[in-house]
Design a protein around this nucleic acid. Structure first.
Length: 230
DNA sequence: GACCAGGCACATC
DNA sequence: GATGTGCATGGT
């Protein structure tokens, strides 16, 4: 293993331009077409179920919900989702891990969205993005990453998602510290990109693609496409 | 059997 | 406010 650009800790000391970074990744892997899902409700639920687990496990729980007829964007399906007993929901969510917490959180989220917006499909005006972000952050079990994922992928609103991969990649390129807050990391992207949900969507998906290949199993970051001069 | 994976809340200091 | 811990499954 060679470490041409990385240090012993795998840190690359050359920051990359935020928009250029997108262009490089997009050129390499193209559109990722996130978030996978047949309905808006599936995307919203999936964002919550993907918390602290791999997508494979989250997808199993999503499939269980679909098979139970709970994830269609229809009045009947949504009513069923809102009325399902917590114990039954827990069984369906088991594969995604933390299933008791997630059942409680999902019910609370569905109740809230139902009261505020009725049955899906839902729409939120772009002008209300910030207000809705704050509303959702007030719900139990919804932190910034989950809320931004819901708003970006479920509602096509311009909220840049910061996840573990994003933090790791910025840190390795010397662009943030361990303790840099979520909001500060988000600003690094939003201040350097046009405010467009499609762009945020693809960029985050590409970062996850990058993270899986160059951060997880490659601590020296060999060949990272974002390294200057690579 | 240990470790990790697209978080978050809560207790404690 | 910073840090530690609980929540849990499934793949490698």
């Amino acid at each position: 293993m060679t470490t041409p650009k990385g240090t012993a800790s795998g840190k690359i000391e050359t920051p990359f331009e935020i928009y250029t970074g997108f262009e490089i990744l997009f050129k390499r892997w193209g559109a990722r077409h996130w978030w996978p899902g047949d309905s808006q409700l599936e995307i919203v639920a999936g964002a919550l179920l993907a918390q602290a687990t791999n997508w494979q496990n989250a997808r199993k729980a999503v499939s269980n919900l679909k098979e139970a007829g709970l994830l269609a964007d229809t009045v009947d399906s949504f009513r069923k989702m809102c009325r399902i007993r917590k114990e039954k929901l827990e069984i369906l969510l088991r594969p995604s891990g933390y299933y008791r917490q997630k059942a409680k959180r999902l019910k609370a989220l569905m109740d809230f969205l139902g009261k505020e917006l009725g049955s899906p499909p839902w729409e939120i005006p772009v002008a209300d993005t910030k207000a809705w972000r704050n509303k959702l952050l007030g719900l139990n079990g919804l932190g910034p990453e989950t809320v931004d994922s819901i708003l970006l992928y479920g509602f096509n609103l311009p909220c840049f998602v910061i996840d573990a991969y994003t933090r790791r990649i910025l840190a390795r390129h010397g662009m943030c510290e361990e303790k840099t807050s979520y909001d500060e990391l988000q600003e690094i992207f939003t201040k350097n990109l046009p405010e467009r949900s499609e762009l945020y969507n693809e960029y985050h998906a590409l970062i996850v693609r990058l993270g899986k290949e160059y951060c997880r199993s490659n601590p020296s970051c060999d060949g990272c496409p974002l390294a200057r001069g690579s």
